[in-house]
Simulated assay, not measured.
Amino acid sequence: MTFVTKLTFQSGDKAVLDRVVDNLKSLIEKKGAECRGPHADQPERTSVPQYRTLQPGDQFPAWNYTVYTRRLEIHGADQIARQVSERDYPDSVHIEIELEQKKPLGHRRN
């Protein structure tokens, strides 16, 4: 059975995000693993209201920011996926790791 490691990176700093993902992709490929991506999602614009007090009413202007998302997939190469998950990433980059088990065609459940 093959494992697919799905990595999702998010950040408000597009330049840092792209640098992290590009460096990671080249590292994975140098180690000989199959890497798909990076796939970019549409940037997500978020607006957060800011109140001057704990009671509704008087407000500061809303805080607006953009979140950028990139996704990578590592097929097989469990040891490389483990190394990627243990790396240190900048504080401005959020990473989510999902592991999916792929069964060969024709495989039956017991």
Rank of each mutant, 00 (worst) to 15 (best):
T5K: 04
K6I: 12
L7K: 09
L7S: 01
T8E: 09
T8G: 08
T8K: 14
F9D: 02
F9N: 00
F9T: 00
Q10K: 15
Q10H: 11
S11N: 12
S11R: 07
G12M: 14
G12N: 12
D13V: 09
D13I: 08
D13S: 08
D13C: 07
A15T: 12
A15W: 07
V16I: 10
V16H: 03
V16K: 02
L17T: 09
L17N: 08
D18S: 03
D18G: 04
R19M: 04
V20I: 10
V20H: 06
V20Y: 03
V20P: 02
V21E: 00
V21F: 06
V21Q: 01
V21N: 08
D22L: 12
N23T: 08
L24N: 02
L24Q: 06
L24E: 00
L24M: 04
L24P: 00
K25L: 11
K25G: 13
K25F: 07
K25I: 09
K25Y: 08
S26Q: 13
S26K: 14
S26T: 15
S26N: 14
L27E: 13
I28T: 03
I28D: 06
I28A: 05
E29Q: 13
E29V: 11
K30E: 14
K30P: 11
K30F: 15
K31I: 05
G32D: 08
G32Q: 12
G32K: 08
A33I: 05
A33E: 06
C35P: 02
C35L: 10
R36I: 13
G37D: 09
G37I: 11
P38N: 09
P38Q: 05
P38T: 07
P38C: 11
H39P: 02
H39F: 15
H39W: 15
H39C: 10
H39T: 14
A40H: 08
A40M: 09
A40P: 03
D41F: 11
D41S: 14
Q42G: 13
Q42C: 13
Q42F: 11
P43Q: 10
P43S: 08
R45V: 12
R45F: 11
R45S: 13
R45K: 15
R45E: 13
R45P: 10
T46R: 12
T46C: 10
S47C: 14
S47W: 03
V48Y: 01
P49Q: 06
Q50H: 01
Y51D: 01
R52P: 05
T53H: 07
T53G: 07
P56A: 13
P56F: 10
G57N: 12
G57E: 10
D58P: 01
D58E: 08
D58Q: 05
Q59H: 02
F60D: 03
F60H: 03
F60V: 00
F60N: 00
P61D: 04
P61R: 01
A62T: 05
A62Y: 01
A62N: 01
W63I: 06
W63C: 02
W63T: 04
N64Q: 13
N64F: 04
Y65D: 01
Y65G: 04
Y65L: 05
T66Y: 04
T66W: 08
T66I: 13
V67T: 15
Y68C: 03
Y68Q: 07
T69R: 15
T69Y: 09
T69H: 06
R70L: 12
R70M: 03
R70P: 03
R70V: 01
R71Q: 14
